[in-house]
Amino acid sequence: MFSNVDWIEDCDTLPLTPPGAPAGAESGVPAASRGAGSRVTRMAEDRAQGASEWVDHVVRIRDARDEAAFAELFAHFAPRVKAFLIRSGADDGLAEECAQEVMATLWQKAHLFDPARASVSTWVFTIARNRRIDALRRQRRPEPEDLPWGPEAEPQQDDVLALQQDSERLAEALRSLPEKQRVLIERAYFGELSHSEIAEETGLPLGTIKSRIRLALDRLRHALR
């Protein structure tokens, strides 16, 4: 039922606002480094680090305050978060500062990470996005009421593995999209898209990932009763 995302035509009424001050735009990532070529080289080195391995890193931080695990997560994610913030309109100094804060938040909230509901990349994205809203748009970010997972709701290993695999599959599907569609999605997430332009069917496999998250939420709700 949800195997396709239909970008419904009448998006004109969506009150989208740009994420960042356009003033810092000239300090953006060089155009050359956004090209498909650099993506391909990165893919090869990154493929070795599966999504599940990052989960172990976060668990090591949560359980053992493991600075070596943190250093590896930092090396991988901090430069991506910084690029994301620069692309959203931050200058180099602000992006550096915010990227450090995002990574510190990852350490401090390691116990709130639920690997049955999100990959580490997804979790880092949500922290970076919220930092962007706060620092660049100077808005608050209302979040849904928390469903914390206590010891009684420790997620099943099967669920964790399945969600992490689905996340990799989603990333793969995103990479194999026609360039035009991929660019549209990127621009929507980096806040570069005017809302009338969101009118594409992406064909991303969101259905399975959605039902897994739903299952994890059901389990949490059950554990909270």
Binding site: F2, V29, S33, R34, S38, R39, R42, M43, D46, F77, A78, P79, R80, V81, K82, A83, F84, I86, R87, D92, A95, E96, A99, R117, A118, S119, S121, T122, W123, V124, F125, T126, A128, R129, P144, S167, L170, A171, L174, R175, I185, E186, Y189, F190, L204, L206, I209, K210, S211, I213, R214, L217, D218, R221
Partner: peptide
């Protein structure tokens, strides 16, 4: 929870995009 799961699957799209983001030097 139905919409929460859908919103979190859109978060996963953001995560996948971040993974492919060109890196900026720290």
């Amino acid at each position: 929870d139905q919409c929460r799961a859908e919103a979190e699957s859109y978060d996963a799209v953001g995560g996948a995009l971040l993974e492919d983001e060109p890196t900026a030097e720290m």
